[in-house]
Design a protein around this nucleic acid. Structure first.
Lengths: 128, 128
DNA sequence: TTGACATCCTACGACAGTCGTAGTACGATT
DNA sequence: AATCGTACTACGACTGTCGTAGGATGTCAA
């Protein structure tokens, strides 16, 4: 794979970056770089969030009250980092997004040609 | 339901309006108003595409060569309408989007808390 | 000490799809 | 003639994403 995020269009992910971040923060507070790596590993390298996207999501979500930030020097290293933790509002928002996702997934799926897709994959003649 | 498209965020659908339209056109040529109604009925009123979104998708996709337009007076009524038909390129694009969708769906799903979602819904049978 | 490299973060502006608002125009029904 | 459903166009605002750029710290090896 030459490209980054090959096959994943940012238009689809749009609006779900927040959800992914909140999913991570739901487990424990974290910071930019670590979250970015976790998203990458959870998606098995299929999705790599851009730094700018990530940090702009932070400021947006903090403004909306979904997350709260605090300064801390992580694990032994004297380096100060901006940690984020999820708030109650953020948790509720995350749950709403989960519901929305199930709904949206169901709707979009109706416009995806699943059967012909399967046939195509086995049909060398490309018949329809 | 008070709101239009309640629960479906335009950020998620973004980029999949094209796919929905192509799904309709894959079956037979059609025009704006009819496509809009078909999307609404296929989604069981869960998603109603905005007029402006629809027509801007037309011009975008025609520019990209995914669809071709022609003037015709539909069923008996003397009214002229702009019909669109899908092109070979459009068909390929549609198929790519189907693949992309399966991939994206899989990735996003990993960040959706499915089990707590089921518990929340109160599934007493524990079905999956 | 110097340099390379990974980490950690900010600023700015461009881009594109969506959507609100507005307006036009035709045909059929009342 | 007024109203409604149909059919379409124009314009500009909004927002999340992302390219580009830059800066500052810590670690490790040469």
């Amino acid at each position: 794979m030459a490209e980054i995020n090959a096959g994943i269009s940012s238009d689809v992910i749009r609006g779900y970056n927040d959800t992914m971040i909140l999913y991570i923060l739901k487990q424990e507070p974290s910071y930019g770089y670590e979250i970015s790596k976790r998203i990458r590993s959870i998606s098995e390298d299929k999705y790599i969030i851009k730094e700018t996207t990530l940090y702009s999501a932070f400021s947006r979500m903090e403004k909306n009250g979904y997350i709260e930030s605090y300064e801390a020097a992580g694990d032994g290293s004297g380096k100060k980092r901006t940690y984020y933790r999820i708030s109650e509002a953020g948790l509720n928002y995350y749950r709403e997004k989960c519901n929305e996702w199930e709904l949206t997934k169901d709707v979009v799926q109706r416009f995806i040609d699943g059967s012909s897709y399967l046939i195509m994959k086995g049909d060398k003649n490309g018949n329809d």
